[in-house]
Amino acid sequence: MRVPVLTYHSNNISGNDYATNDHVALAADLRLIHRKGLRIVPLTQVVDVLMGGASPSTVAHAVAITFDDGSWFDWHDLDHPTCGMQRGFAGILRDFSGETGAFVHATSFVIVSPDARATLDRTCLAGLGWWDDDWWVAAQREGLLSIESHSWDHNHHTLPETAQREQRKGTFLTIDTYRDADAEVRAAADWLDGLLSPHRSSLLAWPYGEASRYMLDDYLPTHQAEHRLRACFGTEPAPVEHSSARWNLPRFVCGSHWRTAGELDQLLIAATERD
């Protein structure tokens, strides 16, 4: 198994070209993936293979796609205050599938806390109510997107208060006790499971791509009955392989690990060349 997981942030809109807009990049990248003869598979399928529950052939010559943060831009078409109308990520996926007939799926890792999202909508977006969860149930039922956890509150530095016991914000490395880990991870899973039943949250993407040694070595492996996660994803730029660490699986991030279609092309060649 050698599967690149590509990550996009729908809030990344500062212009209307590839380098400044993850919506433009996603639309172009889907077609590049298709031209290269690569398949798109659900992230859960990659985890199934990693854990021995499915054959590696199910993810051969494939990529998986993830979105982080879970704002309205993942789902809705919106008129951006400075960059104009933006096709939501879900619409971009539908457009691609309708054009090519190819299967497409993505996983949206969402910040779960309603209070945190309401504040982040004001501090990180335009304050127009674009970080609500009104679309999560519809997305999960349609099957185009799977909703998974990006933690309870991201321990985000703009929040007046987070789950971190000492209010050391802006990093996830300070989530390093059972209390803090449970508040960020299990509480998020419980909330999602209540909203999205019968879907059960089983994956998490680390905020900032960071995880403390306590999380990786203690909380996740020894408290599985409580948090119920199967795997977690970071941002190390590498494909997922059988040897990848289950609690910190790698992902490539648009805008950080590639900035042009040509760079993605070379990344995909390198990431899948052993297949």
Results as ranks from 00 to 15, higher is better:
A54L: 05
L125T: 10
D134C: 09
W191T: 12
A19W: 07
A211S: 07
I92P: 08
L229E: 00
I33P: 00
P42A: 04
D69I: 02
D217C: 14
L6I: 10
A139S: 14
T82M: 14
W136P: 05
S244F: 01
P4Q: 07
C83D: 03
E263H: 13
G143P: 14
L249A: 10
T66V: 12
W258L: 15
L32E: 02
H80C: 09
R117W: 07
L128E: 08
G127T: 03
Y8E: 06
G91C: 01
A54E: 11
Y219C: 04
D29A: 01
I40Q: 10
A271H: 05
L38P: 09
C124S: 15
I269Y: 05
H23R: 10
E226L: 09
P56F: 06
E161W: 10
L159V: 12
D48K: 04
L78W: 04
I13H: 15
A138M: 02
E99V: 09
H156Y: 12
A90M: 11
R117T: 15
A64T: 12
Y219S: 05
R117A: 12
G143N: 09
D68N: 10
W131A: 09
I269T: 06
L220Q: 02
I175W: 04
A211Q: 02
H223L: 15
L50D: 13
T177Q: 02
C254L: 02
W152Y: 09
L249F: 11
D182G: 12
V46P: 04
A102G: 09
L249P: 15
R117H: 05
Y8H: 08
L128D: 07
L120S: 03
Y219T: 06
T171G: 12
A106C: 13
D79S: 03
D176F: 08
V63D: 08
Y178R: 08
W130K: 14
S149C: 03
D79Q: 01
G98W: 00
V41Q: 05
L195T: 10
L267N: 06
S71Y: 07
E226I: 09
H257F: 00
F67W: 07
I33M: 00
S256N: 14
V46F: 04
F233Y: 06
L204W: 10
H199A: 13
R168G: 00
H76I: 07
A64R: 13
F103Q: 05
P250F: 03
V240W: 11
Q266M: 02
F73L: 13
V5S: 02
I40P: 11
E241D: 05
H199P: 08
T177A: 00
G37S: 02
G52W: 14
L38C: 08
V137E: 15
D134N: 07
